[in-house]
Computed example of a mutant assay.
Amino acid sequence: MQQLDFSIVDSHIHQWDPYNTPHAASLAVKLLGKHPYLLDKMVRMVKPQDLIDTVGLTTHVTAPYLPENYKQDAGEYDIEQIIHIEASWHDHKGKGVVGETRFIESLPFNESTVKLGGIIGTADPCDSSFKKILKLHKQASPHFRGIRRMAAVHEDPKIHAWANEPHLYTNKKFMKGFEALAQMNLSFDAWVYSDQIRDVTALARAFPETSIVLDHFGTPVGAFGEVGSHTGLTQTSRDNIIFRWKDDLAELASCPNVYTKMSGLFMPVLGHQFHKQKKLASKQQVFDLSLPLIRHALECFGKYRVMFGSNFPMDSVSTTLVNIIDAFSDAVVSYDPDALQLVFQQNARQFYRL
């Protein structure tokens, strides 16, 4: 564990409240919120199995996650500010997505909880009203910094798809709308599975003036164990996933307008089984599993284009936030002690214009 003599910027958290917002689980929690066992059963009945397998458990997505919850999870760590990343707001069509930005802006971010640094909302570049929706986001909050449009789709049909097509970022209509981001000085959070990283590279090369950050190192699905119907079944297949991920990440890093987030490394979709074993990964386990990924990302992007993000509460199914900060900071120091404050504070400040 590093003794950090600076405050942390967490570049990737999610906030939600199924009880008071148009959340996908709203009806279920209002009916069964006082009965956790029945609530879990209902969610598992109505949601597709591939989604359940991707998130691992249901409790963290059906419970509110608000500034005070994050403050508690952070323990004794001094969190300077956070970036909220869009979290599948249920009213996701057209202008409805602006409701999430208004909701986040209304939350109690203050001295007793944590400071709000920025909001990354969502919008569809394919929408004919895309520019207008971006303007509405900006009007809704002075903290609005850009958007994320998830494109994670896997060839394994039992792995949840977060978009309607496998190559959204190279869709001509998407790319046409995407021009507006640079024009409005907004950034883009890209999230794909690792076998789609080349799509992010193509997008970055087509729009060299747009600041892009690859979330979660590009999520090498199945790198740590079996997921879906046939992904990560053997050590050889897992090695091949990592080999391709390494090559594609290095190619993406050649684009100077692209950063990446050291985040989301303990989502079940990577093949972690901790939630099935009903235990949390220790700090040492987090360090051992994440170190090869973190070192490779730093080798590719350097110490100025990697930023820390907790991905909480999504990664809480596998370990604690304190264990993640402990282990990730040790991993960064093992690569280069001078990178620590850059990765955990300054790079996010610079990228998101905090």
Rank of each mutant, 00 (worst) to 15 (best):
255 C>R: 01
187 S>K: 03
14 H>Q: 10
191 W>P: 00
180 A>E: 13
135 K>G: 05
133 I>G: 01
143 H>S: 09
269 V>Y: 01
65 Y>K: 03
164 N>I: 02
220 P>T: 06
68 E>Y: 05
13 I>S: 06
140 A>Q: 09
259 Y>P: 06
197 I>C: 04
126 C>N: 11
263 S>N: 01
71 K>S: 14
282 S>E: 10
228 G>V: 04
125 P>A: 11
269 V>C: 10
15 Q>R: 03
297 A>S: 13
328 F>N: 04
6 F>G: 11
346 Q>R: 15
152 A>T: 03
179 E>Y: 05
181 L>F: 03
161 A>V: 02
32 L>I: 05
268 P>K: 07
298 L>E: 10
101 T>C: 01
299 E>K: 14
283 K>M: 13
349 R>E: 15
170 T>K: 05
160 H>Y: 09
250 A>T: 12
237 S>M: 13
311 N>W: 01
347 N>F: 09
151 A>V: 08
252 L>E: 03
145 R>T: 10
94 G>I: 06
20 N>M: 10
32 L>T: 08
171 N>P: 03
20 N>Q: 15
231 T>G: 04
84 H>K: 07
95 K>P: 04
181 L>E: 01
33 G>V: 09
69 N>T: 08
196 Q>C: 10
57 L>M: 10
32 L>G: 08
185 N>P: 02
129 S>L: 13
104 I>E: 04
352 Y>V: 12
235 Q>R: 08
91 D>T: 08
323 N>A: 15
311 N>A: 11
277 Q>E: 15
176 K>Y: 07
77 Y>F: 14
3 Q>H: 15
225 G>L: 12
204 A>T: 09
228 G>P: 10
228 G>F: 00
200 V>N: 03
130 F>V: 11
277 Q>N: 11
109 F>K: 00
290 S>T: 12
296 H>T: 05
265 L>G: 02
239 D>Y: 08
264 G>H: 00
313 P>W: 00
112 S>H: 15
252 L>I: 08
308 F>A: 02
258 V>H: 08
217 F>R: 00
7 S>H: 10
139 Q>P: 04
174 F>C: 05
231 T>D: 09
31 L>G: 07
120 I>T: 02
186 L>D: 00
72 Q>T: 10
78 D>F: 07
288 D>W: 05
139 Q>N: 13
256 P>I: 07
96 G>T: 11
